[in-house]
């Protein structure tokens, strides 16, 4: 059944054994044992299976592997390397800034949706390093999180945006940035002793 299709996945060219109509998701999970993209709906409704195809987010659950023959796929696992290529860094960082920001914000609950949330946010930040609150909501709106971690994910995206600017533009955080961040704040938490 070998389909003689070839994919470049996270920088490595791989031959595909599955039938050409097989959704890319099953090739990535069952053949290549990747644990980033994962099944959520199979209907292009949730974003659980998102990967980057030549830098653009797609839903691998409804994309036949034949449609991506010869193309370059980046999964959650490959984001640091992809980021390094984009920014022409000598070496891939440990984590893509959005991954680091999600840890810093402790945004995750079950984390199952975070493949999609992170991949989509990485795509957004690659096109717009300073997305506004509105732009974040718009870009992310096709990605669901049943645990309700949207507010923290929004904070993580803003934090990653800050990190990327600090690291690559050489610009210091300006007063205006701080104001914007404060104005956009999705919420503060408080611990009260009684």
């Amino acid at each position: 059944m070998a389909s003689k299709l070839k994919l470049r996945v996270n920088g490595v060219t791989r031959e595909v054994d599955s039938a050409p109509d097989t959704p890319l998701l099953y090739v990535l999970t069952d053949e290549m044992h990747l644990q980033g993209p994962r099944f959520g709906c199979g209907l292009s409704q949730c974003g659980s299976c998102s990967v980057l195809l030549d830098g653009a987010e797609i839903r691998s659950c409804v994309t036949p592997v034949s449609a991506v023959n010869g193309k370059s796929v980046t999964t959650l696992e490959g984001l640091p390397q992809w980021y390094a290529e984009q920014k022409t860094l000598a070496k891939a960082p440990e984590l893509h800034p959005i991954q680091q920001a999600v840890i810093d914000e402790q945004a995750v609950q079950c984390g199952y949706c975070y493949n999609g949330l992170i991949v989509k946010a990485a795509e957004l930040l690659s096109k717009n390093t300073r997305p506004s609150d509105r732009q974040i909501r718009e870009a992310m709106n096709g990605h669901l999180c049943r645990c309700g971690t949207y507010p923290r994910m929004m904070r993580a995206i803003r934090r990653a945006s800050e990190m990327m600017r600090d690291a690559h533009s050489g610009a210091e955080t300006t007063a205006a940035d701080e104001t914007e961040l404060a104005a956009n704040a999705t919420g503060d938490s408080a611990e009260v002793a009684r």
Partner: peptide, 22 residues
Amino acid sequence: DWNSYPILRFEECPKVTPICVQ
């Protein structure tokens, strides 16, 4: 599915302020 059983999305998400009373 998520179309016939919609849940809240990013665009509809409120600001939230959690308070843990210790």
